[in-house]
Write a protein that binds this DNA or RNA. Structure first.
Length: 156
DNA sequence: GCCAACGTTGGC
DNA sequence: GCCAACGTTGGC
């Protein structure tokens, strides 16, 4: 089974890579995703051990902060059943959940954070989904080439 | 806070 | 199935 590579966005004011690191077992359920494409990646394609770039969005300096891995494969996102949750979805039920999530485990925080504006300068990353105009998808596939370049040449 | 780009909803 | 209206994302 070949390992796949992903990028997951998070707003550091809400949940940062440091928050992930300080969780019990350094693991967190990636709940609250309410986009079908992103859901399908989690439900159908993300496998245990796949590697994830953790991206900080909607903050002063957006960019890639470090690495996590898939710790638990697809299971229903319970927040869609919870009427008190802001992620509650009336069209979901326990019998027929609409939303799924994976759990991710902290692996590494880069010593040097990789800001978006520096990623944009990299010719080798010009095709990266993250850097395409209008790209808003919160969970994206990353190629092995991109992943290796980012983790081995840009980050330490 | 602005706004472009994208996704979803719902009337027809 | 089309598409206008609306809501959200996310960089700047």
């Amino acid at each position: 089974m070949t390992k796949k590579y992903w990028l997951m966005k998070t707003e550091p004011d809400t949940f940062s890579i440091d928050d992930l690191k300080s969780r019990p077992n350094k693991t967190e359920s990636w709940d609250g995703v309410r986009n079908y494409q992103a859901r399908n990646f989690m439900r159908d394609e993300m496998k245990k051990g796949d590697l994830i770039l953790i991206y900080h969005s909607s903050c002063k300096i957006p960019g890639i902060a470090g690495i996590a891995e898939v710790a638990k494969e697809s299971h229903p996102d319970h927040t869609c059943f919870d009427k008190t949750s802001k992620y509650y979805d009336p069209k979901s039920s326990e019998e027929n959940p609409r939303w799924f999530m994976v759990s991710v485990k902290f692996k590494k925080k880069f010593k040097n954070f990789l800001p978006l504006n520096e990623l944009k300068e990299q010719k080798k990353l010009k095709d990266m989904l993250l850097l395409q105009k209008g790209s808003r998808l919160s969970i994206q596939p990353v190629t092995k080439k991109e992943y290796d370049f980012i983790t081995q040449e840009l980050a330490k």
